[in-house]
Amino acid sequence: MAQAAAVAKPPAPPRRRRASATPRRLPYLLIAPAGLLMLGFIAYPVISVFYYSLQDYNPTKPWRNGYAGFGNFTKIFTDDPVFWDTLVFSAKWVFVEVGLQLLFGLALALIVNQTFVGRGLGRALVFSPWAVSGVLTSAIWVLLYNSQTGITRYLADLGIGSYGTSWLSDTSTVFPAAIVADLWRGVPFFAILILADLQSVSKDLYEAAEVDGAGRLKQFWHITLPHLKDAIILSTLLRAVWEFNNVDLLYTLTGGGPAGETTTLPLYIANTSVESHDFGYASALTTVAFVILLFCSIVYLRLSKFGGDNK
């Protein structure tokens, strides 16, 4: 056994030399799995979405399939009021949701960054909804908003509001109701990211500011906030894209209703492809959504001067 090991040993050095002498092929080998997966399941689908967007394509009505030119796009922009409604709602949804999540997330991160008794437990508890899925969030808030046994019933017991109120089926309350449900899950995301970034603020800066007599508010404004700037820009952008794209919550909580009141563009697309199987039109809508997203992201990064001064 020992002999075998001794025999096996000599070939090792050349292998090592080969390993460090041929890094030419190695990096390609290493990224190959990721590259292939992404080519096959992201790049190819994206290209086929562009292709289908120029087609009439509906598996349930195969006799109408064929090249459509820009027909789908003409229909979107001139003949589809639902598209404009969903676009406006998407903007409203993303703007309100990301803005409030950032605000509360920042406040929460600053609070749990303090030293206090029970900090670890406090952090774990306030961050915990982060791990909860969109569907589960819906399930929880469906129970809370239920007209018979939900919160409104107990509020009515206390004399606030009336029995049988259902916030999710009333067009005037469905928006705030959905916003609150998504905030519940979204705030921890910002809080976690911002808290992580707060760890890297140099303590010396605060001490220097204190020596100069700067108060807490000034320190926050001149040290903390500039330090967080890049993290905030990046996380708001990622979150905005995510809030725009993610349909789990609205799909299950409101189904886009009542009366299409809470349908975002991606939800409209999902409904178009899942329910009416109009894949050609859904692809054209997807293309439009993709272009809008890309355009908004570039404008946002430009306007916010990402990675600008403090690097």
């Binding site: 979405v49 894209v241 794209n245 959504a289 890309l294």
Partner: peptide
């Protein structure tokens, strides 16, 4: 450092904007 690194990094970043939900149809076909 290798030839396609920059392209690959760019692809990684761009893919962040590609919504899985919007690729349901082609993925289904695949």
């Amino acid at each position: 450092d290798f030839k396609v690194k920059r392209v690959f990094m760019l692809a990684l970043l761009c893919s962040q904007f590609v919504p899985g939900a919007l690729l349901l149809v082609p993925l289904f076909e695949i």
